[in-house]
C-alpha cells in the first residue's frame, strides 16, 4: 500500500520510495527504504503528518503516494 493510504494510528515500514526530485531530500529526513513510520494525522488536501524517528514530517499527497509501505502489526 502507499503511505498515503495508511490509517491514522497505523505503523508501517517503508519498502520503496519512487524516483522523483525530492527523493534525496526525503531520505535525508529519514524517509527511505527500511524506515519505520507512524501515521499521525490525515491533514487538509491529502497531506499526511507522520512520525519518522523523532521527527514529525508533513508531506504533500503526491509525495505520500510515491512511498510504498508494508503495514506493521503492533503487538
Amino acid at each position: 500500500m502507499t503511505l498515503h493510504a495508511l490509517p491514522v494510528g497505523g505503523r508501517a515500514r517503508v519498502q520503496d520510495v519512487a524516483d522523483q526530485p525530492l527523493r534525496v531530500r526525503m531520505a535525508s529526513m529519514g524517509l527511505r527504504a527500511g524506515a519505520e513510520v507512524a501515521m499521525l494525522v490525515h491533514a487538509a488536501s491529502g497531506a499526511r503528518i507522520v512520525r519518522v524517528g523523532d521527527a514529525r514530517l508533513t508531506l504533500a499527497r503526491e509525495l505520500a503516494v510515491a512511498i510504498t509501505v508494508e503495514p506493521l502489526h503492533v503487538q
Binding site: 526525503m26 529526513m29 503528518i49 514530517l57 508531506l59 504533500a60 509525495l63
Partner: peptide
C-alpha cells in the same frame, strides 16, 4: 524555480 510539493518538519 520549481514549485515543490510540501515537505516540512513540524516543530512541537
Amino acid at each position: 524555480v520549481a514549485r515543490e510539493p510540501l515537505l516540512i518538519e513540524l516543530p512541537p
